[in-house]
Write a protein that binds this DNA or RNA. Structure first.
Lengths: 208, 208
DNA sequence: ATCATATTGTTCCATTTTTCACAATAACAA
DNA sequence: TTGTTATTGTGAAAAATGGAACAATATGAT
């Protein structure tokens, strides 16, 4: 079983690169084309594919359409993914308005907040009271959520939505959350991303 | 020389955990406390520290205040980091309004956009025309930027700010950018983060 | 039909990263 | 003072990751 997160990220990159190539009229692709597009080696592309039983043609490369089909199936993109956003602050609202998810088959179906002033049922993405999250998650069978609430509220919000059936959470609160059994929390920590960048910029500066 | 990004990310996590412990009144900490807080092993904590020449006391653990000093110095947090945001769309605006950076000593000093309608010089974080970015970067000696512009504009905006002196960029546009010589680009790709999450949720579901 | 060539799939090797294990030693107790 | 204990610091082992190399082979050329 694959536990290598980087490998799955590379599959996403291959997929994105393939759509671009397809848009340019390409029908087949070689491992080294893909390596160039995503910044890796041809061996790694081939190995990534072989891990998932994807095979191409000796001397013929890979057929883009069938390759995309397989990648999309692996990545769960053969069905629309309904996602909800918990927290309608700056970040949460921006995510709800962000148009980039659509073309990836990801649809934000609702936002939730505790602040009554934020509630807006007629929004393109309705913003509902957090009280209603449980019922909403159950009746719509949502499995994925984005958590964009203040630090202090993050753990309890996580517990609430996981108890209601959420299995995967992308957490923007800059602190480590304890994932309830049976659910997965991935973190997007912008402060840490920036710190990391600053560190490497400083190192580059010093060693120059 | 350290090139291990994960190691640096762990340092940030240790730092954050230490502030929380300090706020609770703790004065010293053991490697296994830190391991618990950030979700790792005690050996790794000690090894991470040893890589940077940080040492504690046999049987006495680490003094939190001096440990924080050293981590902050490694992470470049002994001075305010001025950052600018390029692109004042949903994501860019949310980042400019996000209050979480301040407590990390990161200050967003300006935003830039090509759309004249977005310009607002009297904003708490002024939003200026992209034309002015070069002069601003030079005169304020900014080294770090967040790139939150549409895909199509990302590479040219990157080239522009790097030519003006930006050394590190956190890119939110969901495509691979070519980093100009001497600068570093880190990517935050929300679509890919969600895809990744969905993949692992699906795997967990199947193997259950 | 035969040969040359290009490209895959996979094995093996190198490197990086993590974990284990334990000697060294500071703090404390008797 | 001596002994016991807790914890570090690090060297060695193990695991994971990535890359190079090459045999296998399909394709196209002659």
């Amino acid at each position: 079983m694959i536990t290598n997160k980087n490998c799955i990220i590379r599959l996403s990159r291959y997929k994105n690169a393939l759509y671009r190539l397809q848009a340019l009229g390409f029908v087949k692709v070689f491992s080294d084309n893909l390596a160039d597009s995503v910044g890796g080696t041809a061996s790694q592309v081939r190995k990534d594919f072989s891990i998932f039983g994807i095979s191409g043609n000796k001397k013929g490369g890979y057929q883009i359409d069938s390759l995309l089909e397989k990648l999309n199936s692996i990545l769960g993109k053969d069905q629309l993914q309904k996602v909800l956003v918990v927290g309608a602050g700056h970040i949460g609202s921006a995510l709800m308005r962000y148009r980039g998810f659509e073309k990836e088959g990801i649809k934000i179906v609702a936002g939730f907040d505790i602040d009554p002033a934020k509630i807006n049922r007629s929004n393109p993405v309705p913003i509902l009271p957090l009280d209603e999250a449980k019922a909403f998650i159950k009746s719509n069978q949502i499995r994925i959520a984005i958590l964009a609430v203040p630090d202090i509220a993050a753990q309890s919000a996580l517990d609430l939505i996981c108890a209601a059936g959420i299995k995967g959470v992308l957490n923007f609160a800059p602190l480590r959350l304890k994932a309830p059994d049976g659910s997965i929390v991935n973190n997007v920590n912008l402060e840490i991303e920036l710190e990391n960048l600053i560190y490497f910029v400083n190192v580059a500066e010093k060693t120059k």
